[in-house]
Amino acid sequence: MDERTGKILKCAACILTALYFGAAVLAVAGMAVLRSDRLQAPEQPIDFPHTVHVGQLGLACTYCHIHVEDSPEAGVPPLEICMGCHRSVAVDRPEVRKLIRSYEQKKPVEWIKVHDLPDFIYFSHKRHVRAEVDCSACHGDVAKMDRIKRVRPLRMGWCIGCHRALGASTDCATCHL
């Protein structure tokens, strides 16, 4: 091939290669943006630290999460449970003052649900708790979390893996009603 064509080809090859790798780098950046907001510990309306309540004070999970053993929905505790202590404990702290304000205004705290499943999934907390699945199997070591963070994928493959290992039902209708 003559020199000019060679040079053009060379440029074209370089340009194409550069474009290709540039597109790949952009794809990585896109992925970084799209996946960055998943699950990392969201900021809650009240900065409730499990490290203090579970880690230092040693509260059992069921002290606050009272319905895990008898309801499909785990739920978050009613403010009465918080006020049981915080009526008089640490009332000078700003986060506790937020709590007291919510209680006095009879407004529930709008917690951001971290362990959220799609609406088409039926997940019964009480069945899992009664099967003696430890809380940390799905929620991780909550005592070490300043802010609650999801540390399990909560995807079907993970659920099925545990169901198969422990002999629970893997029938579709168990979860997909």
Partner: peptide, 26 residues
């Protein structure tokens, strides 16, 4: 492998219940 992710409860071994019967209340 953050510490809060590694720690996990040991699920109980499968119990010999009737198929489909849920666990009784503790």
């Amino acid at each position: 492998m953050a510490p809060e992710a590694i720690a996990m409860g040991i699920p109980a071994l499968p119990k010999a219940t009737e198929a489909g019967e849920p666990e009784k209340s503790p």
